[in-house]
Amino acid sequence: MQTASTNICERMGHFQELSEFKRGTVIGCHLCNKSIREIFLLLNIPWSTVNGIITKWKKLGTAATPHNAAKW
């Protein structure tokens, strides 16, 4: 018998970090006034990821990952 936590873990994908190029592409699209919807459809990246990249860029001025970001 499986527990609820086992089921969730089986359904969830593994974390995969976006390349610096893709994060930069998201920011570039945002600067060209593309909506989040247009960006995630164009780049085939989840909406939440696109939103997170843009939010982090607005707050910190960088889209770098925590181990690459000097401001973390």
Rank of each mutant, 00 (worst) to 15 (best):
C9D: 15
T25M: 15
L42D: 08
R23P: 06
F40Q: 06
I8P: 02
P66D: 10
L31V: 09
T55F: 11
I8Y: 08
E10T: 01
T3N: 03
T49V: 13
K58V: 09
M1S: 14
T6Q: 14
T49Q: 08
E17R: 09
W57Y: 15
E10S: 04
L18I: 07
N51L: 11
H67P: 06
S48V: 11
L31G: 09
Q2K: 11
W57T: 14
W57S: 14
G13R: 11
Q2R: 09
T25Y: 12
I54V: 11
R11I: 12
N68C: 08
W57E: 08
I36R: 00
F21P: 01
I39Y: 00
V50T: 07
S35M: 02
P46Q: 06
A69V: 00
K59V: 15
N51T: 12
R23E: 01
T49L: 07
K58S: 10
T6G: 01
I45P: 01
N33Y: 00
L31S: 14
E38N: 03
N44I: 05
E17D: 05
K58N: 10
S5I: 13
R11Y: 08
E10Q: 04
T62Y: 03
G24M: 05
L18W: 03
G13T: 10
P46C: 02
I54H: 00
N7F: 10
P46R: 03
T25D: 14
N68H: 12
S5T: 14
P46A: 05
P46M: 00
E20T: 13
A69N: 15
M1Q: 13
I54Y: 00
N51R: 14
L60I: 12
R37V: 15
G13W: 02
F40R: 08
W72E: 10
G52R: 13
K56L: 01
F21T: 12
G28R: 03
K58R: 11
W57C: 09
W47S: 08
I27L: 10
C9W: 13
L41V: 11
V26C: 05
T6R: 05
F21G: 07
E17M: 10
H30W: 10
G52I: 04
V26L: 04
K22H: 05
G52P: 04
G52H: 09
I39R: 00
M1R: 13
C29F: 14
N68D: 10
T55L: 08
A70Y: 07
F15W: 05
K56G: 00
E17C: 08
T3Q: 00
M1T: 14
I8G: 03
L41Y: 11
A69Q: 02
N7P: 00
E38T: 05
E20H: 13
F15S: 06
A69H: 04
I36V: 15
T65W: 06
L31R: 15
Q2E: 07
T65F: 07
W47A: 04
K34I: 07
